[in-house]
Design a protein around this nucleic acid. Structure first.
Length: 161
DNA sequence: GCCAACGTTGGC
DNA sequence: GCCAACGTTGGC
């Protein structure tokens, strides 16, 4: 990681959108995020090229399964205006959008998915937001040391990735 | 399916 | 501005 590239983690239920779906699509709008903190990270802090850990939640074994990258600057999430969309927000207006998103592109699946339980028991992962009790944030920053450790556990060389 | 934790809403 | 009620997240 050259310069001030910052690592992130996004959660998704694979039945809704999986890492395989992202690989198939080649690129996707990370739409439907309806949490202000998560929105702010995307809108204010994400930069094109930042690495993104892709996490599967709501599964028998929740795990980090892939590596992606931020592929666009933030822009208005169009689903907030779509009355037939589950993420429709009647309080959002064209003049005052509420929700923003970035595009994501897949880089590669982790050769070895890294289960949440492994992270919880790993001393080097101490303090990571993801493993904090009651954490519900679906877009979060990841400390560089934690990011590198997860790549390592996932079977990727942190230097090469 | 259960339930704890959390964020948001809305009445006051 | 407080806070109870509610809906959602997400691990188990």
């Amino acid at each position: 990681m050259i310069g001030m590239s910052r690592a992130w983690l996004v959660k998704s239920e694979p039945t809704a959108y999986s890492f395989d779906d992202l690989k198939r699509d080649g690129r996707t709008m990370w739409d439907g995020v309806r949490n202000y903190q998560a929105r702010n990270f995307m809108r204010d802090d994400m930069r094109v090229g930042d690495p993104v850990l892709f996490y599967h939640s709501g599964t028998a074994e929740p795990a980090v399964v892939g590596l992606a990258r931020v592929a666009s600057e933030a822009y208005v999430d169009p689903t907030q205006y779509a009355s037939d969309d589950p993420h429709f927000d009647p309080k959002a207006t064209e003049a005052k959008p509420r929700w923003y998103l970035v595009d994501l592109e897949p880089l590669r699946a982790l050769p070895q998915p890294v289960p949440l339980t492994n992270l919880k028991s790993d001393p080097e992962i101490d303090g990571m937001l993801l493993v904090k009790r009651g954490n519900r944030l679906s877009v979060m920053p990841v400390a560089t040391a934690h990011y590198r450790r997860i790549l390592e556990l996932g079977g990727l060389d942190p230097e090469a990735a």
